[in-house]
Design a protein around this nucleic acid. Structure first.
Length: 196
DNA sequence: AGGTAGATCTCCT
DNA sequence: GGAGATCTACCTT
């Protein structure tokens, strides 16, 4: 194997627009096990949440079209990156009907030394990207990427050619107060890179 | 092991 | 003006 990225490119393919142009819940579940690639880092998606658009009071889209949320109302397959709590940024994929998929945790795949430099507080590899604010730091994802096309080469998601099997677990979403009982958090069962 | 406070910015009321 | 799709350090049990 020449290096991590060449190996990854050789055994996977980029997801296309059709992947994202579905209901957010479908996209969320389908994202598990896929590989997010940005710069010299890559990570396997192990935990996500679905946000369902204007009728989901916990979703930013429920505020309607504002300067912040306008990207959600655009074409599927774009990145929605927003700033939260004065310190952190969170990455979403835009799905159909103003739906969103929040990426909550990654299993580091490529560029792990670089991730460690960006996340000096993480002592264990499990802590490098096991949270929405952690993974954006580890992968160098900022609001500068808000609105970019995920079918381009700045940042994208890949599916492994070799299908793998795993069990998907479901729970309510984390850190929200409205619609707090909706079962829209999906994660790979028994995976040690899932948040808290 | 578990709870809490502080960091500190952007958006919408 | 206040809440917010969070994380870490620093307490107390």
């Amino acid at each position: 194997m020449a290096n991590c990225h060449d190996d990854l490119l050789a055994r996977s393919h980029m997801l296309t627009r059709e992947f994202y142009a579905r209901h957010a819940t479908r996209v969320a579940r389908a994202c598990l096990g896929k590989i997010l690639v940005h710069g010299h880092t890559a990570g396997r998606i192990v935990e996500v949440e679905a946000y369902l658009g204007i009728d989901d009071a916990a979703a930013h889209a429920s505020a309607g079209i504002t300067n912040r949320t306008k990207i959600i109302f655009g074409d599927p397959g774009h990145a929605y990156v927003y700033f939260i709590y004065g310190m952190y940024e969170c990455l979403n994929f835009v799905a159909k009907d103003a739906g969103c998929v929040l990426i909550r945790a990654l299993e580091p795949v490529c560029g792990i030394p670089l991730m460690r430099r960006r996340r000096p507080a993480a002592k264990r590899i499990e802590d490098l990207a096991s949270g929405p604010g952690k993974l954006t730091l580890a992968m160098g994802i900022t609001r500068k990427l808000n609105g970019i096309d995920l079918t381009g080469d700045r940042m994208h998601v890949r599916a492994l050619n070799a299908k793998e099997r795993f069990k998907i677990a479901v729970s309510p979403r984390i850190g929200i107060s409205k619609c707090a009982d909706w079962p829209l958090r999906f994660f790979i069962a028994d995976n040690r890179f899932v948040s808290r």
